[in-house]
């Protein structure tokens, strides 16, 4: 007679060695390695990386004589690190002892909030970084010649009739403003691209499991 799954399960544990308790070794040394912990670790590293990066770019920009770029990057990166440091605190507070759905949902909520805040931040951050690069190359070293002025003088010499606004070529200024506006408009997407490069696979796994759990909660799906 065919045995039921239930009886195979029950009888299996009576005869097998499956229930031998493993030895607990170096439990304190075992790093907490679940998804949320890993995310927190990566996040912490990223925040530190941003701060270190801000100082490195500042130093390098002085060495290559475009300090305004470094200063601009520094001004943009430090608030970015601070905002994400604050977000990290929320990640540490996720309760692991609630049911599976609530646990993953809490993490998902945190993730969405983190993405939303960073997307808003990106609208200012990316154009600002672009402006910092332009400023770096335009103003050159502090107290030295301004490469931007030389470029402008050359342009005026070549196109003496060009339209100017506040002393700058109108069309060039409009082009720069257009690029900055486009970068700001698409900043959210650029940020998502960035995010997916680092956390894409983890985010997808989270979505898959949540979708499965949500299906379980819907009467209509059965």
């Amino acid at each position: 007679m065919e045995r039921s799954i239930e009886s195979i399960w029950k009888e299996g544990f009576l005869t097998s060695e499956e229930l031998v308790v493993p030895k607990i070794i170096n439990l304190y040394d075992k790093k907490s390695s679940h998804l949320v912990d890993k995310f927190a670790r990566m996040f912490r590293i990223n925040v530190k990386g941003i701060v270190i990066g801000a100082f490195v770019v500042l130093l390098l920009s002085w060495l290559v004589r475009i300090p305004y770029m470094g200063i601009g990057f520094f001004i943009a990166l430090i608030p970015l690190a601070y905002v994400n440091y604050k977000l990290m605190k929320g990640l540490d507070q996720i309760d692991k002892t609630v049911n599976s759905y609530s646990y993953l949902k809490s993490f998902d909520t945190w993730l969405k909030e983190m993405i939303s805040i960073n997307q808003k931040f990106a609208r200012v951050f990316y154009p600002f970084v672009l402006l910092a690069v332009l400023a770096g190359y335009w103003f050159g070293p502090i107290g030295g010649d301004m490469p931007g002025e030389a470029f402008l003088a050359g342009l005026k010499h070549q196109f003496p009739d060009m339209l100017l606004i506040f002393g700058y070529p109108l069309y060039l200024t409009l082009a720069v403003l257009l690029i900055l506006a486009l970068v700001s408009i698409f900043a959210g997407r650029i940020y998502m691209f960035d995010l997916n490069l680092v956390y894409g696979r983890q985010i997808q796994r989270l979505k898959d499991i949540l979708a499965d759990l949500e299906e379980l909660r819907k009467n209509s799906s059965f």
Partner: peptide, 22 residues
């Protein structure tokens, strides 16, 4: 670990592992 383990039980455990996490 499987010397004394019932074949049906082994197969059942393997089958369970093939299910989704949930």
């Amino acid at each position: 670990r499987t010397d004394n383990t019932d074949d049906s039980f082994k197969q059942l455990y393997n089958a369970i592992r093939k299910l989704s996490e949930v």
